[in-house]
């Protein structure tokens, strides 16, 4: 399984290099405060990386916040139910 994932990764990297080489012409962006000219391939790569990181961050924040909230509630429950009688 691990080997298969490695092969796929190498294939994608190779495809990215070929894609970048085939689309080496520049494309310019007007960001309002500046004009940026980057190769088309690099622009696509940056879009992929930013999307990936944002997606991961959202999932991680969502699960860890709900997990922490649940743990807090459980502790309160256990304390209430297992506390010795006064």
């Amino acid at each position: 399984m691990r080997l298969l994932a490695l092969i796929f990764l190498l294939l994608f990297i190779a495809a990215g290099v070929v894609f970048g080489a085939l689309n080496a012409d520049l494309v310019s962006y007007d960001l309002g405060f500046a004009h940026v000219s980057v190769p088309k391939g690099a622009a696509a790569l940056v879009a992929v990386v930013i999307g990936w990181v944002l997606g991961g961050l959202t999932a991680w924040l969502g699960t860890s916040v709900s997990h922490r909230r649940r743990r807090r509630r459980e502790r309160a429950d256990i304390k209430a139910s297992a506390a010795p009688a006064a």
Binding site: A43, A44, A47, V48, V49, I50, G51, W52, V53, L54, G55, G56, L57, T58, A59, W60, T63
Partner: peptide, 22 residues
Amino acid sequence: WLLVLIPPAAFACGWWAARRTH
């Protein structure tokens, strides 16, 4: 179109990968 579609697709992939790791 490619530049419009790539970020959401990458976002979805990143989200799925993070969930899987968790």
